[in-house]
């Protein structure tokens, strides 16, 4: 298959990438769509809506969208942990279920609608309020909103930026390290790093 030069997809086909690295990244690129196995269909749709606001993908074609929510669902299905959790939080699965309920509860309290029915601006208002510990709803009395939001955001970000297409978006080519790096100083780039990504 043809891929534009200097994209991760084209790099992955070269020997600039080691076999284990290629395998890890290809498995994400080519992951088949999956149905949620931890969340209910409603919960999952809500989680997807939340992730769309946290990590927007508006410019991406539908076929290239990175399925952040599925990664979360898969982890919780497998009962995997990242090694720790805040002591004031319930176990991860319970925290997610509660937190999703909380988003809907806050949306109802302010706008009389479930979260998914809100406009993007309203959704952002709810999310910002949860993050700032200012969201209405009894759920947030039992679930520390700031810690929940931090965990959700960190996991969404990690799921998104571990995907090759997201790495391409920020101009990251560190996976193409099979030959090692000779030019490592400031403004000192290898040929495969040509596509500079400027912050401005």
């Amino acid at each position: 298959m043809f891929h534009p030069a200097n994209t991760i997809r084209s790099l992955l086909q070269t020997d600039l990438v080691t076999a284990p690295t290629r395998e890890a990244l290809n498995s994400r690129l080519n992951a088949p769509p999956r149905q949620p196995t931890f969340f209910s269909a409603d919960e999952f749709a809500l989680l997807q809506a939340v992730c769309d606001r946290l990590v927007p993908q508006e410019g991406r074609e539908p076929s290239q969208r990175i399925d952040i929510a599925s990664g979360i669902d898969l982890r919780l299905s497998e009962n995997k942990s990242n090694g720790w959790r805040y002591d004031d939080m319930p176990p991860d699965g319970e925290a997610y279920r509660l937190g999703l309920r909380g988003f809907d509860e806050s949306a109802q309290a302010w706008f009389g609608q479930p979260f998914r029915n809100l406009s993007p601006e309203q959704q952002d208002e709810v999310l910002a309020a949860v993050q700032a510990l200012e969201a209405p709803g009894s759920t947030w009395d039992i679930l520390p909103a700031d810690h929940f939001f931090e965990e959700l955001l960190a996991e969404a970000v990690e799921n998104y930026y571990s995907h090759p297409l997201a790495q391409e978006e920020i101009g990251y080519v560190g996976m193409a390290d099979a030959p090692g790096w000779q030019r490592i100083g400031l403004n000192n780039l290898e040929d495969r790093e040509k596509k500079a990504n400027s912050p401005t």
Partner: peptide, 22 residues
């Protein structure tokens, strides 16, 4: 053979049994 240049794939190097942090 086992290590990828990929942080996600390398999660396996960490002690991921859950600890409670207070």
């Amino acid at each position: 053979l086992d290590f990828a240049t990929d942080e996600r794939a390398q999660d396996k190097l960490f002690w991921n049994d859950e600890r409670l942090s207070a």
